[in-house]
């Protein structure tokens, strides 16, 4: 009886701890299931012209991709937006945890970011390299949108932003 009580307590403690470990992965899977159109596909949030709210933060227009590095590195390329108050590309692991951010140089016209697995470092110094702590994760581009001029600029930039496999 006593042994069963101790085992029960230990199993309950394991369940308690596992809940916190599993929760972020569960939420990540739920979000992917809800909005993803497939791995390594860049999705752009709708421009806020509709009265139906579709953005978690009205300060930003987002682009998001759920990435998978199983088949190799990925390359994110795009044009640096001019005149926006804020533009960043944030990276999150498979458990939704933030691990890196890139804010492309406003003086440059374009940017290229290579996303690699942490265990596969590259010696290529010509690109910004981000080492993902997990094979899967999420990258989010945030464009701050203040007015219709920003909106037009962001729409054009979204069209030329690409996430592709590195040959």
């Amino acid at each position: 009886m006593k042994a069963r009580l101790i085992i029960g307590f230990l199993l309950a403690a394991l369940g308690f701890w596992s809940y916190f470990v599993a929760y972020p992965y569960f939420i990540q899977a739920a979000i992917e299931w809800k909005i993803s159109k497939g791995k390594n596909i860049l999705l752009h949030s709708k421009l806020p012209t509709s009265k139906t709210p579709d953005s978690p933060n009205p300060d930003f227009i987002y682009s998001i991709a759920f990435y998978d590095l199983k088949d190799g590195d990925l390359l994110l390329t795009g044009k640096v937006p001019e005149g926006l108050d804020y533009f960043s590309i944030a990276f999150y692991g498979s458990n939704t945890l933030f691990y890196s951010i890139v804010k492309p140089d406003q003086k440059s016209d374009t940017y290229a970011i290579r996303l690699v697995k942490k265990s596969q470092r590259t010696t290529d110094n010509s690109q910004t390299v981000i080492e993902s702590p997990s094979e899967k994760g999420t990258l989010i581009l945030r464009y701050m949108c203040r007015n219709s001029r920003d909106l037009t600029s962001i729409a054009k930039i979204q069209e030329v932003t690409r996430l592709s496999s590195v040959p």
Binding site: R4, I7, G8, F9, L11, A12, A13, L14, G15, F16, W17, S18, Y19, F20, Y23
Partner: peptide
Amino acid sequence: KKTILLFISAPLVGAGIGFSFM
């Protein structure tokens, strides 16, 4: 039966407490 029940229910109780605690 009691052992199987223990192995199933105890982690679930723990996870439930975790859920409430959060």
